[in-house]
Amino acid sequence: MRTALVIGTGLIGTSAALALTARGVAVHLVDHDPAAARTAAARGAGAEGAPDGPVDLAIIAVPPAYVATTLAEAMRGGAARGYLDVASVKGGPQRELAGLGLDLSSYIGTHPMSGKERSGPLAATADLFEGRPWVLTPTRDTDTSVLNLALELVALCGAVPVVMDAEAHDRAVALVSHTPHLVSSMVAARLADADETAVRLCGQGIRDVTRIAASEPRMWVEIIAANPGPVADVLAGVAADLDDTVRALRSLQSADEDKRHDGALGVEDVLRRGNAGRARVPGKHGGGPAAYETVTVLISDQPGQLARIFADADRAGVNIEDVRIEHATGQQAGLVQLMVVPASVPALTETLRERGWSLRQ
């Protein structure tokens, strides 16, 4: 791949353009909002404006509702040898394109499983896709050369290719992306009118649950509106669990000992099923979740504190597998949770104490 055209210079389109440009591909940038294309170009993502002739690959990075029409226009204009989109829903655009009577041999649907709470070209980064799955949904008509172009794009962006059927993809993202976003927003909505005293008690748990609720609502309306059936199916299951849990909690308020016992079992059931589901979430390097132990360290909110901790862990010969930070409300301090393999805990704790760190159980 020597040349590419990116149509749609939001977070995903600009990030892909930055990654390609950094690897020597000549990228052209087009957007219905000229200011967005100018911003992406100013960030080094490529040259603003359409190319003079066909490019190797056209990347359609527009909302799902506009994918088919944008692709059709590009195809009819002979913009590229191969075409792909990066929308988060695949079945609908694929059916729309087929309905337009276009030759789909030069097209492949794709979806990079990566993003941020922020959108737009200013939020884009060249490393956005590194190590992340990038789904490819070829049709039976997709030409091998176009599949190879898509695989080259994925490789240049540092992502991991995953080939799926379009409908299976849409059911999967309803489960692992779209429904979680709605549920996160529902939990976060409880905070909107909550008493300030309660809100000040927010800890890491509520921050984890509501993190993705900070995303742009209009963008997510477009995404979910393109995949309503599978999302509704998953959400119906969540609603059933909610109903059962509410009944279990009401039973715990009963004066009847048997009802309280049944209520406790009901709550325990949903928690245990949650444990089982969480255990299936892929861990580091895509494998199963590893059994890490946590070493918690108190740090002050000053420059260089994290660098010191990591340097001291290196001094102990310990690899930090993961890290989380919990900020203390109203204080210039916080807790850093260092996840390490169990065998590394003694060496790490000994070194950190020797270096003057305050550890917490």
Rank of each mutant, 00 (worst) to 15 (best):
G44E: 12
A166Y: 03
I59Y: 09
A74E: 07
G131F: 09
V27A: 04
A155I: 00
E350W: 00
G288L: 12
T245E: 09
V267D: 04
A87R: 03
W220M: 02
L338W: 03
C157I: 01
F310I: 13
G13A: 10
A279C: 07
V6K: 00
E117L: 01
H28R: 14
G24N: 07
Y107G: 03
G356R: 03
L306Q: 03
R355C: 12
R218C: 04
D314Y: 05
L128E: 06
A248Y: 01
G10I: 00
S177N: 09
P180D: 04
G274Q: 09
L306E: 06
G82K: 01
A239H: 14
R211D: 11
G356K: 07
G237I: 03
S145M: 05
D165F: 05
T142Y: 10
V341Q: 13
A214C: 05
A328F: 11
S184G: 10
V154G: 02
I12F: 09
E321K: 13
G205L: 02
A236R: 15
F129N: 02
G24T: 12
G49V: 11
Y107D: 02
G78S: 12
P289W: 05
G44A: 07
V27P: 06
D103H: 12
N227H: 07
R360K: 07
A16G: 00
V89A: 14
D56N: 13
G77M: 07
P138E: 08
L71M: 15
C202D: 13
A72K: 07
